[in-house]
Structure formats: C-alpha cells, structure tokens
Nucleic acid binder design. Structure first.
Lengths: 125, 125
DNA sequence: ATACTATATGAACATCTGTTCATATAAGCA
DNA sequence: TGCTTATATGAACAGATGTTCATATAGTAT
C-alpha cells in the first residue's frame, strides 16, 4: 500500500511512505511540541534511581530533606539538588516549618506514573 | 519529634532523624533496588522528545521504521537507534514482514504512562 | 548472480547529567 | 550578638546520552 508522500524527509528513506493513511492519522493525533517537550522533561527527571526513590518515598509520606537523605543513604546536597529539579518541573512541592522543609508529591498523576511504571517493570521479571 | 537513629548517614545531616517513624514506614514500603533501577531506565528512555513521540505514535498505530522517520522528521538511523533501546527495555516489540519491520508498544502500561504523563503536563499550562 | 532498499549498528563527537565539594542562606537558640 | 543546623546552590568533573556518518545486513526483484 505504498502511496506518494506530501512531505517526506530526504534523509530517512528512499520511498516516501509505506502507509500514508496511518501516518496521516497519527500526525493528526500528535501532541504539540511543547507538550511533548514537557513530558520528556518529566520522564527524564524520573529517569534516575535516586529521584525515583525520592518520588516513591514522597508518594508515601511527607518528608524533610534530612530524612530523605538518611532514608536513601545519599548526601544532603545531592538530595537538595534533586528536589530542586523536581520542584522546577512541578513534580514535588514543599512547605517550610522553621528550619525544616517538608516535601510531598505535587499531584496524583506522579503517584500514578510510579504505580503504572512499577507494574510495567514487575512484568519484566 | 526528633528521635534517635538506628542507621544514619554521616554526610547527610548532623542530627539523625527528624521523624524516625515516617522514615521507618517508608523504608518498609520501598521497592527493591532492581525494580527501582528498571523503572528509572524505563523513564529515562521516555525522557527524550524523539522517543516520547515514537512511543505516542506507536500507541496509536503499528508503524514501520520508515514511516516513523518521515512522520517525525528524523533520520532513519536515529529512529532505528531509538527503537533498539526501546526494544531492549521491552517498551516496544516488532514483527518483520519482508523488508519491513512493524513496531508497536509492548504493553498497555506504556500507553497509560503516556496518558497519565500528558495529563500531568497539561496541568502545567 | 546484481541491483535496490528497509533496517540495523558501530564509532565518534558534542552535549547533557548527577554527584561532590565548598560555601551561602536562613532559622532557632544561647 | 554569636553559634549551631537544615537547606540551598554554584562550580567542576566524570560519566552517560542522542545524533550523525558510514557501513553492514537482510529481503525483494530482475
């Protein structure tokens, strides 16, 4: 079902499209570059064992920086840097109580991402 | 509610724990290092705009390498490299039909990860 | 066989990322 | 005022990552 292309990329393949119909429908459903970029940023932040553990811990309990560091066996500085990037992408939020900063997940989507993700990897055995 | 610690990390904070109870309960719930590592790998793979778009496209339609490359405006080589890493983490699977390799998402978890993720970023406005 | 083509892959390169170290800030207490 | 401590952050460095380029492989057709 090879069909002529309307806008093929020169470097990709010689023939234009194998199935132009499917490509067209997917192109129509495709998310905006901005949404894709934000989502990739979100996943990239979670693409690190330390931050996965931080996020998982914060899904269970509100915790301060010090307790997170001790829980994970990671330096305070490393945790603080990680929390900053997580904060910038709105994955976590925090409140200050005197000297202590308490962090939690920012919304339920993140907790569900973790759940769904763990369900996936548990199938990998 | 500061309590004595049983196993604090020296480099993290001077005092041992702010709230040992919460830390203890989180520690009990914590996933294995292996599961965490696999999940971080999974997220890291999706932490790239090109691969997010590939995964999203494959959530909609089964597509060959050539059509993915044209759809995204990316070189065939880049797509093939990306598909390889996605394949290695069991995020996608493929079937061969003659010269052509058709790819799809490997399981429903990945599609749900994308959905949940997009729902999160859409709240970032 | 040869020619063509869809896909795969190794190497190289520039860019990005996570941690460490040192230091700064800010809050509580003497 | 000082002293202590919980957190934040900038700089730097080693290691990882995505793309490109060149080339290899595998399947079709002549």
């Amino acid at each position: 079902m090879t069909v002529k292309a309307t806008e093929a990329v020169s470097d990709s393949c010689e023939i234009e499209f194998i199935d132009a119909e499917k490509v067209k429908s997917v192109r129509k459903a495709m998310k905006s570059a901005n949404a894709v970029s934000l989502l990739a940023d979100t996943f990239r932040l979670l693409g690190d064992p330390t931050r996965v553990r931080i996020a998982f811990a914060l899904a269970k309990e509100e915790l301060c920086v010090c307790d997170i560091a001790n829980l994970l066996g990671v330096s305070q500085s490393a945790v603080s840097h990680s929390l900053r990037t997580l904060r910038q992408m709105k994955l976590v939020r925090f409140r200050r109580e005197g000297k202590i900063a308490y962090y939690t997940l920012d919304d339920e989507h993140i907790a569900r991402l973790l759940d769904e993700g763990f369900r996936h990897v548990e199938e990998l055995v």
